[in-house]
Simulated assay, not measured.
Amino acid sequence: MFKRALVSLALLVSLSTAAIAEKLTVFAAASMKDAIERAAGEYQAAGGDEVVVSFASSSVLARQIEAGAPADVYISANTDWMAYLVERDLVRTDSEIIIAGNNLVIATAEGTKPAESPDALLDERFAMGDPSHVPAGKYARTALENLGLWKDVEKNAVFGENVRVALELASRGEVKAAIVYGSDQKAVGDLVRAYVFPADSHAPILYPAAATKDGAESAEAFLAFLKSEAGRAIFTDLGFSEATE
């Protein structure tokens, strides 16, 4: 009886391990939430592995991977945090791809007229990602500095731990506006795009993705799906721009 129990336990452990192995864990930037959730669903429906996604700021996720978090794929909202993991030999560099681009906008309440300059939209409390580590916040600060406005509006800025937090603050009316990605503004129905920052006011907004160093072999299959026609259609539909490398 005891031996049978051991055999049964060993079988259960084996099956459990196999089930875990069939799951693909993806760490993705918060601004990619809608797109990656849809992509994961379509990938699974097409016969791919089950995909479990964790969303947060690119910096938080990169540091979690550095600390040993078990991720198979990392998707960043800028190239800096991907480079951070590359320098530490924590991703498979031959798997790295650019899956999408984006633009930087000011989202504010419905009824707000488009502005020719951002200063009038940022004359009261506004939200943005924390520029010390959140990619969207870094882009926003750089853009405002290049437009000669940062020193004037910095005092009004409320920093969020990721770009979706900034968006939520504006959506709830806790701030006058939020500097977010164009895809974020499109994702909510109660905010309008009042200003689009010039493309040359900040570095190109790109989303690199790669398999982690110890990630499952199937990580590359998911990355290939993101670059496929079906994957690109998801990003375009949700307001991202075409990926450029």
Rank of each mutant, 00 (worst) to 15 (best):
M1A: 13
F2W: 12
R4T: 05
A5R: 13
L6I: 14
V7I: 15
A10P: 06
A10V: 15
L12G: 13
V13I: 15
L15A: 15
A18L: 14
A18S: 13
A18I: 14
E22T: 10
T25Q: 07
V26T: 03
K33D: 07
A35D: 07
A35C: 10
I36C: 01
R38C: 01
A45L: 05
D49I: 00
V51R: 09
V51H: 13
V52C: 06
V52R: 11
S54W: 01
S57V: 03
A62T: 02
A62P: 00
G68F: 09
G68S: 13
V73L: 12
S76Q: 13
S76L: 14
E87H: 09
E87T: 10
D89H: 13
R92K: 15
T93L: 11
T93D: 08
S95P: 04
E96G: 06
I97Q: 01
I98T: 09
I99F: 06
I99K: 01
T108N: 10
A109Y: 03
E110H: 07
G111E: 08
T112S: 10
K113I: 14
P114E: 07
P114I: 09
E116D: 14
D119N: 10
A120N: 09
L122A: 12
L122W: 07
D123K: 13
E124I: 00
F126E: 03
A127C: 01
A127F: 00
G129H: 04
D130T: 06
V134L: 08
P135N: 10
A136S: 13
K138Y: 02
Y139W: 11
Y139G: 02
A140D: 06
T142Q: 13
T142H: 07
L144D: 00
L147I: 01
V153H: 03
E154N: 11
A157L: 10
A157W: 07
V158L: 12
V158N: 08
F159G: 05
E161D: 12
N162L: 14
V163N: 11
R164W: 06
A166I: 11
E168A: 14
A170I: 10
R172D: 13
E174W: 15
V175H: 06
I179T: 03
G182W: 04
S183Y: 05
D184H: 10
Q185I: 06
K186G: 04
A187K: 12
A187C: 08
V188W: 11
A194D: 04
Y195L: 07
Y195F: 15
Y195H: 10
A199C: 00
A199S: 08
D200T: 01
I205K: 10
I205C: 02
L206K: 11
P208I: 09
P208W: 06
D214I: 02
D214W: 05
G215W: 02
G215R: 09
A219N: 02
A219D: 02
L223E: 00
S228I: 01
G231N: 05
R232T: 06
I234T: 02
F235K: 02
L238G: 03
G239R: 06
E242W: 00
